[in-house]
């Protein structure tokens, strides 16, 4: 018995010594590996897009490339990159999160000018997802603050989508009621109706769809379409508010990482593919609004026409200002939330 025990211990020790040697070189034989650190609802898009890029790259260069992805709340993902997650490219929910990475010196400050259209190859907007037949009769932003309506949205501090949700509501209230004080009141009332605050957009969607909590989900348009697709048209309806926001999820190559790994060419080719017809088509199929006018026309029946404000609207003054005013410590969100 004792001898067995001893040999067991020796075997275990040997395994522990070998394991670290084996671990860094797994059996994956790709010539290049890219890491795309992305936000929550892009899981399905990049699964398909990665396959497309790997095929293209193989056909053009004869080399194999493997693309890994990581998804989570946009702010949280940015934090991971800042803390050393070796992302070759970041594809996040909003520009400020990439700005935060740039502030730490991982990429050039003018990163957003390096690719066309504010480095956002696709756009989206914020819509309402309600239960089939819209039992609470939710038509527009005003209906969200009615008593007895439960609103599901993620946490603006960690989720990019939630920040777009919040700002779209702000834009509406500001336009309708005319003052910041009123807009603040409106949002305070809205967040009083929020029973669950998940850290990422996907968590909120799961709460609303699978767990059956809430009457309306403030969602990325693509996420709302996807929920209908996943759970069936007979479960949910999409309600388009009278005013929403043009969400531009940007993409960027992380200079510091690609220069160290020598992957700049591949990483740039990867992002450029997003702007091609094929990339745009794939985005549209995953319910992101394509930038390419021709592809956009093909899919114009899919996406409802909405009156959209942008983040550069004087009401916001760009992401840096919006972040500081609304979401930083002591900002408007903190004020309406601690009350």
């Amino acid at each position: 018995m004792f001898l067995n025990f001893k040999s067991l211990a020796v075997a275990g020790l040997a395994a522990a010594l070998i394991a670290p040697l084996a671990a860094p070189a797994p059996v994956r034989a790709a010539d290049t590996t890219l890491l795309n650190v992305s936000y929550d609802p892009t899981r399905e898009l990049y699964q398909q897009f990665n396959k497309l890029f790997a095929e293209k790259y193989k056909a053009e260069s004869g080399k194999t490339v493997e693309i890994k992805t990581s998804h989570g709340g946009s702010g949280k993902q940015a934090r991971s990159v800042i803390d050393g997650l070796e992302a070759d490219v970041v594809t996040l929910a909003l520009a400020y999160d990439i700005d935060a990475i740039a502030d730490k010196g991982f990429l050039a400050q003018d990163w957003q000018k390096r690719l066309p259209q504010n480095s956002s190859p696709y756009t989206s907007t914020i819509v309402f997802l309600v239960r089939k037949g819209n039992p609470k009769g939710i038509k527009d932003w005003d209906d969200l603050v009615k008593p007895g309506v439960q609103v599901i949205t993620p946490n603006p501090k960690t989720s990019g989508g939630a920040r777009w949700n919040y700002l779209a509501g702000w834009a509406y209230a500001l336009k309708k009621y005319g003052s910041e004080a009123k807009a603040k009141e409106y949002l305070a009332a809205l967040f009083k109706n929020v029973p669950v605050l998940d850290t990422g957009a996907r968590g909120s969607t799961v709460t609303f769809t699978e767990r059956g909590v809430g009457d309306v989900l403030l969602a990325w348009e693509n996420e709302a379409f996807l929920s209908k697709k996943e759970f069936g048209d007979d479960k949910f309806d999409i309600v388009v508010p009278s005013l929403s926001i043009l969400a531009e999820p940007p993409v960027a190559v992380v200079d510091k990482v690609v220069d160290r790994k020598g992957t700049r060419a591949v990483a740039e080719a990867y992002l450029k593919l997003l702007y091609t017809k094929e990339g745009q088509k794939l985005a549209a199929e995953n319910f992101y609004r394509p930038r390419d006018p021709e592809i956009a026309k093909q899919y114009e029946n899919v996406f409802p026409k909405v009156d959209l404000v942008t983040i550069d609207d004087p009401a916001f003054g760009g992401w840096r200002k919006a972040q500081k005013t609304h979401f930083d410590d002591g900002g408007v969100f903190d004020q309406i939330y601690s009350n």
Binding site: D40, S70, H71, R202, E230, F231
Partner: peptide, 21 residues
């Protein structure tokens, strides 16, 4: 860091799948 196929352990994979419907 939640990199699929690389830094996800079984419990993290459980969470990811759970969040992917």
């Amino acid at each position: 860091g939640h990199v699929r196929g690389e830094t996800n352990t079984i419990p993290l994979q459980v969470e990811i799948l759970y969040n992917e419907y």
